[in-house]
């Protein structure tokens, strides 16, 4: 693996794990004993399914197990990708501070694409009103202070595709 992953130990999945990923990436069966049902399909016990899922959770292969809501159905109509041009000397400390704000759901450093794209810090916010976005953008700007030289907010206006990860067979 490339050096960019050096902070994490890469989790190696065996073929059984991969079959389990394929069997569950679209969702869990809504039955009282879902692990047993998945195990039946894959030729293993429910106990083994649980053990492998627990292992993948511990290794970070699974972030979490639960419900994935549709933002729009919950009334979050203003989904803003806020992007910031932050002094490289301070971006890591400030990125961590922005990521720690309770309303920021994702926060990353990404490369600039000059001259078209001067922004290196990306933070997502999800709001029910436009005014709320403006308030939150103001709060992020307050954290960044003088280290920030420019910003934009890109609103999503249409979902063109949303399937999530799909491992091929």
């Amino acid at each position: 693996m490339p050096e960019t992953h050096s902070r994490d130990t890469l989790a190696v999945l065996d073929e059984v794990d991969r079959r389990l990923v394929r069997a569950t990436q679209g969702g869990l069966p809504l039955v009282p004993r879902p692990w047993d049902l998945i195990g039946e399909e894959l030729g293993m016990t429910g106990e083994e399914v649980r053990g492998r899922l627990r292992g993948m959770l511990e290794r970070g292969v699974i972030r979490r197990i639960g419900a994935v809501p549709n933002h729009y159905a919950l009334g979050y109509r203003f989904n803003g990708m806020t992007v910031w041009d932050v002094d490289d000397r301070h971006v890591d400390a400030l990125g961590a501070a922005v990521g720690a704000l309770p309303f920021v759901t994702h926060c990353y450093r990404r490369p600039r694409r000059l001259p078209d794209w001067p922004y290196n810090l990306f933070a997502m916010v999800h709001c029910k009103t436009r005014a709320e976005v403006d308030t939150l953008v103001g709060a992020i700007a307050g954290v960044l202070g003088d280290a920030c030289r420019g910003r934009e907010v890109l609103f999503s206006t249409r979902i063109l595709k949303k399937t999530g990860l799909r491992l091929n067979d």
Partner: peptide, 27 residues
């Protein structure tokens, strides 16, 4: 709980119920 999760999925309130995988941790 099972019936309500099914209804939330059918109505599109939830897009999925299950594990969220991190492809980077799989290489």
């Amino acid at each position: 709980l099972i019936d309500r999760l099914q209804a939330l999925l059918d109505r599109g309130v939830l897009t999925r119920f299950g594990p969220m995988y991190q492809i980077e941790r799989m290489g």
